[in-house]
């Protein structure tokens, strides 16, 4: 697939611009009726691929504010989708709200009729790119896929400058990358890489004996411990890891860091539909976005500042993968990857 560089640039600019240019809108107080109905439902079940601190933070904030307990399930986005698929088959849906770090899974589920269209009040001001055209989901935060290196072992001079550098034989046996079989942002990253360099780069990464792990945190551990020196990562994770003292450094590849939009939606047939909607309103509220931002996610709301330790999006070149294509080609790409890299 050939990607026009300008297009990519334009896409990145569009989102970056959007982050700054949309109008500041005050957080709307959630509709009193909704709160009442949500309270009557008693609880809400929240499946999310957000880091635990984000997930627990939002859950706690929500419970403190509305008195409704949140039952959390945290796993990779693909695993969440898998869990949802099995629940849908059993006819006994547990989940009310699903959040993955890339919209692909939720769009697939929407096409299967599993998502309840819902346009949150607090999402009204978001640009169209941050929403499913039929309201199957709404963007909840942004993460960038970039590279990390071991700060002790790799000097700024020798570090890889671009995604293409992953093909460099000097990194043989020193790379680590996340499998799209487990996490949704891993899929976004792979889709981005394919758009930028095609399967040739993946082939080269295989030749370089890239270690395949299930989630970005594993990549961080591998790089931090020196087990590997260079790896892929999501900004939402890498900033946290570095603030926790792990010896890592972020590298923003020349072609652009790959944008991965977290998406949140209500399940069709959710056992607690009103609580689900209220939770999404909360996640998109200034308060909810604040919690995400404090925990190293880039907020979708323009009125919420990014965390102190995070590099502003405006300073980073970005690449946004084609979301429709990502959905259409999902099964095919994952299959080819699995056969190439995991067998």
């Amino acid at each position: 697939m050939k990607i026009n560089k300008e297009q990519v640039l334009a896409g990145g600019m569009a989102i970056a611009g959007a982050c700054f240019l949309w109008l500041s809108t005050p957080s709307l107080a959630a509709d009193e009726g909704l709160i009442e109905r949500a309270r009557q439902e008693g609880k809400v079940v929240f499946y999310t691929s957000k880091a635990t601190a984000n997930a627990e933070g939002v859950a706690k904030g929500f419970t403190d504010k509305y008195g409704i307990p949140v039952q959390l399930f945290r796993a990779g986005g693909t695993q969440i989708a898998q869990k949802l698929a099995l629940e849908l088959r059993s006819g006994k849906l547990e989940a009310d709200v699903a959040e993955t770090s890339d919209p692909t899974m939720l769009t697939v589920l929407y096409r299967q009729g599993a998502m309840e269209p819902f346009a949150p009040e607090n999402g009204k001001s978001l640009p169209a790119e941050f929403k499913h055209p039929k309201d199957g989901w709404t963007g909840s935060s942004i993460a960038l896929m970039h590279l990390i290196v071991n700060a002790n072992e790799v000097s700024p001079e020798e570090e890889p400058k671009s995604w293409a550098d992953l093909a460099d034989p000097k990194w043989k046996g020193k790379l680590v990358w996340g499998s799209p079989n487990y996490g949704s942002s891993q899929y976004a990253a792979l889709k981005g890489l394919l758009e930028l360099h095609g399967w040739d780069l993946i082939e080269a990464m295989k030749k370089n004996e890239t270690m395949i792990i299930r989630g970005w945190p594993e990549a961080e551990n591998a790089v931090a411990s020196g087990e590997r020196l260079v790896g892929g990562d999501a900004s939402s994770r890498s900033f946290r890891a570095m603030s926790g003292g792990l010896p890592l450094r972020n590298v923003y590849p020349e072609e652009g860091s790959i944008v991965s939009l977290s998406a949140i939606g209500v399940m069709k047939g959710a056992p607690h539909p009103n609580a689900a909607k209220l939770l999404i309103e909360y996640v998109l509220s200034e308060e909810g976005q604040q919690i995400y931002a404090e925990n190293f996610a880039y907020p979708v709301r323009q009125d919420v500042p990014v965390g102190d330790s995070m590099k502003p999006l405006t300073e980073i070149k970005m690449h946004t993968p084609d979301s429709e294509e990502a959905v259409d080609q999902h099964a095919q790409i994952v299959r080819r990857w699995t056969q190439m890299m995991e067998r």
Binding site: T78, Q79, A81, Q82, L86, R89, N181, Y182, A331, E342
Partner: peptide, 10 residues
């Protein structure tokens, strides 16, 4: 692995 990817292949 077969069961924990999406879609799960039961």
């Amino acid at each position: 692995v077969e069961l924990s990817t999406f879609p799960p292949r039961l």
